[in-house]
């Protein structure tokens, strides 16, 4: 794997730190007029999601991490693992609950999502920004209410619970922003 020096640290670069794959968030160059230069770097640990701050002497280097984001289709949940497939190669990947994390709330069979692979094994799963899911449980709809105020909880087919406006009824399909977990609109079949 390639080695990157502090000058090459850019946002999004994947590197190995303390044996974990990490992604560079921000790299700040700090240098006294006469003296040693440093880089203060904000780094996200891709395994734990934690963000840490680390300082390097300018010119130090880190090994790159073999981390790639790949668009894949979510196939099914076999109980222990969630299964994904690369749409071109048909290669399949399995990810455990820990790896999938909160993305599980938004994964519907056949939907496309982003699977982050580290050394060819799933490291994280990111759902699409918007998903369309069916409401399987909510209080009956209230006719005529079109304002956004109030709302009620609705349980979706994946198990996620979102707040929806009062007029939205059970068995309807809605569009949700997975980044905020917020209701966007109803989806007309």
């Amino acid at each position: 794997m390639a080695v990157y020096s502090t000058n090459e640290f850019r946002s999004g670069l994947k590197i190995m730190l303390d044996n974990d794959p990490c992604s560079i968030i921000e790299n700040e160059f700090v240098k006294p007029g006469k003296g040693q230069a440093f880089n203060r770097v904000r780094i996200r640990n891709l395994k734990t999601g934690r963000v840490i701050e680390r300082t390097f002497k300018s010119g130090e280097s880190l090994e790159g991490a073999d981390v790639v984001d790949m668009e894949m289709q979510y196939l099914y949940n076999d109980g222990d693992y969630r299964n994904f497939m690369h749409p071109d190669t048909f290669e399949q990947y399995q990810a455990d609950a820990k790896t999938v994390g909160d993305a599980a709330l938004w994964l519907k069979d056949q939907d496309m999502c982003t699977v982050t692979l580290w050394n060819d094994a799933p490291l994280a799963v990111t759902p699409g920004n918007f998903v369309e899911l069916e409401i399987i449980e909510t209080d009956p709809g209230v006719r005529g209410d079109t304002s956004g105020g109030g709302g009620k909880p609705a349980k979706l087919s994946t198990g996620a619970v979102v707040r929806v406006p009062l007029f939205v009824a059970q068995n309807e399909v809605i569009k949700v922003d997975t980044r905020t977990g917020e209701y966007i609109s109803r989806v007309k079949e």
Partner: peptide
């Protein structure tokens, strides 16, 4: 010298 550069840049300046 490098210690001073570091500590001064990050903790004092």
């Amino acid at each position: 010298a490098i210690w001073l550069d570091y500590l001064f840049s990050f903790f004092v300046q």
